[in-house]
Nucleic acid binder design. Structure first.
Lengths: 163, 163
DNA sequence: ACTGATTCGTTGAACTTTCTACTACACTCG
DNA sequence: CGAGTGTAGTAGAAAGTTCAACGAATCAGT
């Protein structure tokens, strides 16, 4: 809109047949896998994958408590979304909100004993699912390749300032 | 509940440290990647990844039309969800519903010229995103490993009768 | 043909997630 | 100090998804 009028037409660098095949396999496989893991977790323990993730993070935090925003950015949810999720989980007695001592704006979210207990009960079944559909289906090398590739992807995405 | 009372207590086969590391990297990486691709697509073309997927499938179908249920199972959405999605897309003029000639229960979903046009406009940007955050970030071998591993996962999930 | 079971797609309500606006506190710089 | 700017969390409305129930068409068995 400034000087050049039309932005330079650059030919799209389409994916090669192979690349497209792999990308689609990845996309479809991930969707189906996550869907399945989510449904199985839901059936067996009543948690969604998101709630489970919250429980896991809290259980591993010092004192089993964490600030809302840490929790949110850690699992990549919006602050708003986490507020709603935690509200539901608090109503269910899984977590408890406390005012944060060091920063009066902040709120700490603490795992209750009930919440921890329910996580302990849910974990074995979930691990079984992950094994059955991912870990035990692949060779050690394949799993490692998967993990390492996605670590690179994540690292790049986090280091990039923005786009 | 029948004979044995307690079901046999079997020790949970937890993941090894390495396995857990890879599984988490996979989970986090996938979440962040898909999130980013979705947001970029949304910003550039106004489509969600789901809508985009619908457009792609239709554009590749013979006659650019497909039965609702084929479409739904192809992309792994519930029939209900697809109904709602297609309703919105139809209101936006991207697709059109027609009665299916061979089966009066069925409904065919056809891509409109507008829909095809909008897909053509959206595609280059999306491919750029996929390259920037996945394809060009990995070696050919890594991408191939990713695709092949997930193809195995998907295949296993589809062949299993149910769980 | 007739009956019952099944599949197709839709509907509306309940629920979850996203988006936007808002309050309160913290930090910083004159 | 105190005005301006940024950050933490929340709240409610809008958008999207899931769930259960339904009407219509097909299929299988008699």
């Amino acid at each position: 809109m400034t000087s050049s009028g039309e932005q330079t037409e650059r030919a799209t660098r389409w994916l090669s047949t192979e690349q497209q095949r792999h990308w689609r396999a990845f996309r479809n496989g991930v969707a189906l896998l996550m869907d399945t893991l989510g449904r199985e977790l839901e059936d067996e323990s009543g948690f969604s994958l998101h709630e489970y993730e919250v429980l896991v993070r809290l259980s591993e935090a010092p004192d089993r408590r964490m600030r809302m925003s840490e929790l949110a950015s850690g699992i990549g949810h919006s602050r708003s979304r986490l507020t709603h999720t935690i509200a539901r989980m608090e109503a269910a007695g899984l977590v408890q909100r406390r005012t944060c001592s060091s920063d009066l704006r902040g709120v700490d979210c603490a795992l209750t004993d009930t919440g921890f207990q329910r996580l302990v009960e849910a974990a074995p079944g979930h691990v079984e699912s992950v094994r059955a559909h991912l870990v035990d289906v692949l060779s050690d090398e394949q799993l490692a390749a998967l993990g390492e590739a996605m670590a690179v992807v994540e690292h790049r995405l986090r280091e990039t300032p923005e786009r």
